[in-house]
């Protein structure tokens, strides 16, 4: 094998999430493991949500990246356990999400949908916590819709999954 494990991790840091293109699959915590088995590269990934339609594209993007580095013998394996959690989104990933206009997951697990208290989410535009959850469900399975009551901008929140 002409590359080390570290180098392969490095390549994977250039593969972006198809739906949130500022995050890499490594930032998102979707890439779980890289193994070198003799001459073969095995990349293990895990889905964020069971029905995430981006999984197949992620797999193909990883394959394309490995192809482009001249690696021929590889396998992209999907595992379900341990199940993905938003805790796996890297610090760097959280900063990038916010810059992109998506509020990163807060530490509190959301307790409410219609009743009770929604999590305190900071507006990614003006940093106000005077925000309001419009809907628990958004444009993708992993996001909820919020609105800032101070700057009045709508924004998305990457909801906490633990």
């Amino acid at each position: 094998m002409k590359y080390s494990k570290g180098e392969i991790w490095h390549f994977l840091e250039e593969v972006f999430d198809p739906e949130i293109p500022v995050l890499t699959l490594v930032d998102l915590g979707v890439v779980r493991d890289v193994e070198l088995i003799d001459e073969k590269v095995q990349v293990t990934i895990t889905p964020t949500y069971s029905g995430c339609p981006a999984m197949r594209v992620m797999e193909e993007d990883i394959e394309k990246m490995l192809d482009s580095k001249g690696i021929q013998d590889y396998e992209v394996k999907t595992v379900l356990a341990p199940a993905w959690t938003t805790d796996w989104i890297s610090e760097k990933g959280r900063v990038k999400l916010k810059e992109y206009g998506i509020a990163p997951p807060s530490e509190e697990l959301d307790k409410s949908i219609l009743f009770g208290k929604p999590p305190k989410v900071e507006c990614p535009q003006c940093n106000s916590t005077n925000t309001h959850m419009v809907s628990q469900f958004g444009s993708t399975a992993c996001k909820a819709q919020f609105r800032c009551k101070d700057c009045l901008e709508p924004f998305e929140y990457f909801k906490c999954l633990k």
Binding site: Y49, C52, S135, F137, G138, A141
Partner: peptide, 20 residues
């Protein structure tokens, strides 16, 4: 609209589970 999105989010979760 929000409920339309919620119901289809659910649908996606279930179809994902069915696939696994």
């Amino acid at each position: 609209l929000e409920e339309d999105i919620a119901l289809t989010n659910f649908a996606l979760d279930f179809i994902g589970q069915a696939q696994s």
